[in-house]
Write a protein that binds this DNA or RNA. Structure first.
Lengths: 358, 358
DNA sequence: CTGAAAGCGCTAACAG
DNA sequence: CTGTTAGCGCTTTCAG
């Protein structure tokens, strides 16, 4: 019965004519081993293809791994609430393996709050960190510090230019934003009857300061101009926090423009636009948004929203933790990027996406 | 550092004034414990909310779990090849936990081959079984035997009526076929310009003997008749293995009928239909099929196939094993049904579905 | 019916 | 630099 086929530390110790302790030292590069024995053991290790038993290791080392997870305050935004769900799932899944997951949240609107959280997290000296990358510059600065203190980290949500010197996470978890814009455009193209004018709505967030919006818009535009070479007119409208509400601004916009389709790259923008569309009785306008927020599903069901693209924040967070665990516990190779599928959500399939995600 | 917050067997042994061995006996209902001590220990167990440490259990019991997995021969069908991929993934993932996964394949076309495999599998007395349910009656008979010998099993691929007495798997892994037909219809509806006549193509497999085809067709039809109350004409054509090839039969059919849309509920049917469509230069016909087979992707890329619905055979197999492991190793609650999302695949998003699925 | 004791494979503290 | 030793929490003989 026993797993006697697998070679144990004891076995290679015997083969090398040394003690288990010494073998353990070279396996974990703990030093204090002469070059000769080190080489000898290393050789046997490779020859036998030894792999350590993670179960035994976890039992033997009375180590509790601490993973810090940083996301915007879930109370501010349903999107991040979903993200928290995924973290909770990860939490219960790995609790029995002595992995503690500590959630730290920061203010979605305030970079300083993120910076403060970074400090707190650094002071707690965790074994690994998972952070949402919502603030570009600040995430970069944080990652630089993490490289210094050599804490492994994974970043999720928004891709950051990979070529930055001091940015080298274990892995990025997220989606290909550009391609996601292409998918949105494709669905709009399929659903539209007589396309003449369409628009991209940037609501609340400013395109300029937000890479993911820029990428999505570019993908969306490129589909029409390059891929199908249509001469459709594509507007861009930006709605920021001003004295008149978003709804009012949007209503005014759709009143003044005869749009057959609207693409809204932010998750909460879709339902705001829906409200405006319904108020203006423009139910024929094709509306494409993001994510399975409660209000988005409401309008999807009513037919006001035609499609949603699911960024699956739950899965993103869950997979982020998962990769960290694989790294910490199992020394597995972690892919530099883990891109989730671009899920197209409709009235008929959304419910199938709402339960089992793991 | 240690997980000293968690109560150990040693602790409750001390509390109950008995030895660890006795506690272990009541925890696992191994008998040989007086009613009094049993009750006492049981009480403490509940009061303290004791949960056993799966890591330690796995180390302590030198047990190698054997899981038998049964699928149709992957060489016969690319669909089952994908399935095998998922099993391989599971295999390497749980190998370090002393879980052995043994793949047994049978002939997709021959129920007897399945029955034989069942016997082989039963004789090996595995700890758990995962089987694809391609043959209705035979799967039922097998499950009956499994209940008798009390081997836990999970079934995936095709849902079997839950109300059958002797069919009670730990879990069913698959998709809601009916809803999947609805999704197909929805996409067809969105993509069609002037719908008058459409058809469901049953290729190779006969509807009558195949529940999943029946369900998918029903969902597809109900969408048009009930959900959007269209008076579109929906044909059903069945193409079986005869002297003239499938392609020839299909070509003849599309030549004689002016179809604006075709729904093909079997995965390999989609590319066969594509060929016929291209031969007849009917590229405007909306074609909806299933699954990310190489040839399907080829025609998706050419625009001949408009949409695919992904049944994600890899994930189905992987999740099946995963649930079995959760059951065996961690005593986790397993949901009676684990339904995968109904993924809509297009030219723009298919590649995002082809790598990370786990 | 019950307790004692030996281990699972690995880690870590401590001598030397 | 290296070996010995005592566990981690649970399972599993084996006596009694």
């Amino acid at each position: 019965m026993g797993k006697n086929k697998n070679i144990r530390i004891k076995d290679i110790a015997r083969m090398a004519g040394v003690s288990e302790g010494t073998v353990d030292r070279v396996i974990h590069n703990r030093g204090n081993v002469s070059v000769d024995t080190e080489k000898k053991i290393q050789g046997i290790l490779e020859k036998t293809g030894y792999t350590s038993n993670p179960i035994a290791r976890s039992l033997g080392s009375r180590k509790d791994y601490q993973i810090e997870v940083m996301i915007p305050n879930p109370k501010q935004d349903e999107y991040w609430q979903l993200s928290e769900t995924g973290i909770d799932k990860a939490l219960v899944e790995w609790e029995p393996y002595s992995i503690a997951i500590n959630l730290k949240t920061f203010d979605l609107e305030d970079p300083n709050s993120f910076v403060q959280t970074c400090d707190t997290v650094l002071q707690s000296e965790p074994d690994a960190i998972l952070t949402a990358s919502v603030f570009y510059e600040e995430t970069l600065a944080f990652s630089e510090k993490l490289q210094e203190v050599e804490i492994p980290y994974i970043v999720f949500n928004t891709q950051i230019d990979e070529n930055i010197k001091k940015f080298d996470p274990l892995c990025f978890v997220g989606q290909n934003m550009y391609q996601s814009g292409m998918v949105a455009a494709e669905m709009m193209h399929i659903a539209m009857r007589e396309p003449r004018e369409i628009a991209v709505f940037h609501i609340h967030e400013n395109v300029k300061s937000s890479i993911h919006l820029k990428e999505k818009e570019q993908g969306f535009r490129d589909y029409f101009t390059d891929f199908i070479q249509s001469d459709i007119k594509i507007h861009t409208f930006t709605f920021l926090d001003r004295k008149d509400s978003f709804e009012a601004q949007i209503e005014e916009c759709i009143q003044q423009n005869d749009l057959q389709g609207i693409f809204v790259p932010t998750s909460s923008g879709a339902y705001l636009t829906s409200q405006a569309l319904e108020n203006q009785s423009k139910k024929d306008t094709i509306l494409i948004g993001y994510d399975l927020l409660g209000k988005n599903i409401h309008y999807l069901n009513r037919g006001t929203i035609n499609f949603l693209i699911n960024q699956n924040p739950q899965l993103q967070a869950y997979q982020g933790v998962r990769h960290l665990v694989n790294h910490l516990l199992l020394n597995l190779e972690i892919p530099p990027a883990y891109l989730l599928p671009l899920e197209i959500i409709t009235r008929q399939n959304y419910s199938s996406f709402m339960n089992n995600n793991y």
